[in-house]
């Protein structure tokens, strides 16, 4: 039972300072549970790829510890690396290899004995079967991206890192990839993805981590984050324009738009009393009539932008 509760990845006080003195990771501590989808957000150069690369063993940490499935990534590298599959950000492929050969190579490299049946399944799942004998240089960017995913899945990893997996891919592939990610999670695979597409994180992640200047400034359940930091607004379209807010409405968090015809009320949707009923009453008493109203929930993108700005 205790094994089930053990986090799959534990990062403790991780620092990475490059030779030139640039600190890419600043005291990062992070716990990742089994079979969750964690999205790491952050502006360019924030340290997302460095964090992933360090966990995967590509970059040596300057200090701190990382355990995967309870084993240290340095002393227990064979066990930890066998568990991990990585889809890199760049389309790095050997141009002259065939799809079949390059995926089979990856399986062998990660210590798994040849299994043509499994490779066939992976290629079919990723709609690559028809291209199995094609050389990598003959494939489009989207197809190459699929091959990189196939390579990462070739050794049946329990943890999958996706570094900007949908960068530059078409809508169809993006949807396919989201589907695949959800399917993998259902099979117990833990997924950590970095992305610039906030809607991607919003659509598939269980938890969101935000990295800025090498620091992990926030890690939160997506739903909690949306509820905690996501503002809800009520927009009222007035029948007659106002030049200023009446004094009796000053107690409300109201904002009169420039045209004078729109009132915006910001409220906390999680509270029992949102204040909407009281606002309506006060509006009526003030003789302000409206012809339409709608509510709006701030997106993860709004939250992300405000978080990043706040931490500057």
């Amino acid at each position: 039972m205790s094994e089930i509760l053990q986090p799959i990845i534990q990062v403790t006080k991780l620092n990475k300072i490059y030779k030139g003195g640039f600190q890419a990771l600043d005291n990062i501590s992070l716990t990742i549970e089994q079979a969750e989808i964690l999205a790491l957000l952050g502006p360019n150069g924030a340290g997302k790829t460095t964090l992933i690369s360090t966990i995967c063993g590509i970059i040596d940490p300057s200090s701190g510890t990382i355990t995967v499935d309870g084993k240290d990534i340095i002393s227990g590298y064979r066990h930890t690396r066998e568990m991990i599959g990585l889809v890199p950000q760049e389309l790095t492929t050997d141009a002259f290899e065939t799809v079949w050969d390059t995926v089979s190579f990856s399986r062998g490299l990660f210590g798994k004995k040849p299994d043509p049946g499994y490779i066939e399944k992976v290629l079919k799942d990723l709609s690559l079967w028809e291209k199995k004998d094609n050389k990598m240089m003959e494939l489009s960017g989207g197809m190459k991206r699929r091959v990189l995913i196939a390579k990462a899945l070739s050794h049946e990893p329990r943890i999958l890192f996706l570094d900007e997996p949908t960068a530059g891919v078409d809508v169809e592939l993006r949807q396919d990839m989201w589907q695949l990610v959800k399917q993998l999670r259902e099979n117990g695979v833990t997924i950590i993805l970095t992305t610039h597409y906030i809607e991607e994180a919003e659509a598939i992640a269980d938890r969101i981590g935000v990295i800025k200047n090498g620091q992990l400034i926030l890690v939160e359940e997506k739903s909690t984050l949306m509820a905690k930091l996501g503002k809800k607004q009520l927009l009222l379209e007035l029948k007659q324009a106002l030049t200023e807010l009446p004094p009796e409405l000053e107690t409300f968090e109201l904002c009169l738009k420039e045209d004078g015809r729109h009132l915006v009320y910001t409220y906390d949707a999680t509270r029992e009393h949102t204040g909407i009923a009281s606002l309506m009453q006060h509006l009526s008493q003030a003789g302000i009539q409206f012809k339409d109203l709608k509510t709006d929930q701030s997106s993860l993108e709004d939250i992300f932008v405000s978080l990043v700005k706040e931490s500057i």
């Binding site: 063993g57 066998e82 490299l109 210590g111």
Partner: peptide, 16 residues
């Protein structure tokens, strides 16, 4: 060649 193409990432992250 893997250094040049960038595919060395796979070698560095493999259990070898």
């Amino acid at each position: 060649f893997p250094k040049f193409t960038g595919t060395i990432y796979e070698l560095l992250s493999a259990p070898v």
